[in-house]
């Protein structure tokens, strides 16, 4: 009887069972690919100067992790293990070419700003890491969700960093000036809003090293809240 139950139950596992939901939610916090698994910092930090760039980069990575995980998982039993890295790289590269061509066609300015970093999604460690660790050993649907979760964890972190850097460095979010205008005009010698009171943008935030320090602080906050993540040196 138990065998029969097993038989009927296995295929009817709901698409969003508890286990599958965990695949999406875990990487957002306690198993974040960037702050906990230390993957995918490579191409991430240089493009967090503006929220818009961070968002587009995040969406591109979500697309590539999802589809890459799905495709690799679907053909995982056909890949000879000696050349699996090359097979994975070629599939990921094909997906990244799609992203790059779409960006170049519909958002040429943004595509020029992101410059080589779209291409570098190929070697983004999150993608290879999840392919190796998850997609090679699991069925396509959970792999897709795992890719979605990890992509969102990465995108979330990018957006948090980008919000800090754009707000403190340029005084705007998505290009909308929130703190008034720093440009002097008639009647407003110092600009408007906060700038009229003598506030200045922190230009340091725009420079690359601050991205690292902000991520360091995010890790600090996260590990203070969740003691289980603390490392022994």
């Amino acid at each position: 009887m138990s065998a029969e139950v097993q038989k009927t139950k296995a295929p009817s596992e709901p698409l969003f069972s508890k286990k599958n939901k965990k695949l999406i939610t875990d990487p957002l916090t306690d198993n974040n690919p960037v702050t906990v698994q230390v993957l995918g910092i490579c191409s991430a930090l240089a493009i967090t100067v503006q929220v818009k760039q961070g968002l587009v980069m995040g969406l591109s990575v979500i697309f590539v992790t999802m589809m890459g995980n799905f495709v690799i998982s679907a053909i995982r039993n056909m890949i000879p293990s000696r050349i699996r890295i090359i097979v994975q790289l070629v599939i990921v590269a094909a997906l990244v070419i799609i992203v790059d061509q779409v960006l170049a066609a519909f958002m040429p300015d943004l595509s020029a700003q992101l410059s080589v970093f779209v291409g570098l999604i190929i070697t983004n460690c999150i993608i290879m890491g999840r392919l190796e660790a998850f997609a090679m050993a699991n069925k396509p649907w959970p792999s897709l969700l795992d890719g979605l979760g990890n992509g969102m964890g990465y995108a979330g972190l990018l957006i948090i960093v980008a919000v800090f850097r754009e707000l403190l460095g340029s005084g705007s979010i998505f290009g909308y000036a929130l703190l008034g205008s720093p440009i002097p005009s008639d009647g407003h010698p110092l600009g408007t809003g906060l700038y009229a009171m003598g506030y200045m943008n922190n230009n340091m935030m725009i420079l690359p090293p601050m991205a690292l320090i902000i991520v360091g602080i995010i890790i600090w906050v996260q590990r203070s809240r969740n003691k289980a993540l603390i490392e022994e040196h």
Binding site: P209, A211, L212, G216, I217, S224, E231, H233
Partner: peptide
């Protein structure tokens, strides 16, 4: 500080080294 050990402090040091390299 315990929560900064390992990864956190490495990020911050890299940031400071980046400033020096600038």
């Amino acid at each position: 500080p315990p929560a900064l050990r390992g990864l956190g402090i490495t990020f911050i040091i890299t940031g400071l080294m980046g400033m020096a390299f600038m």
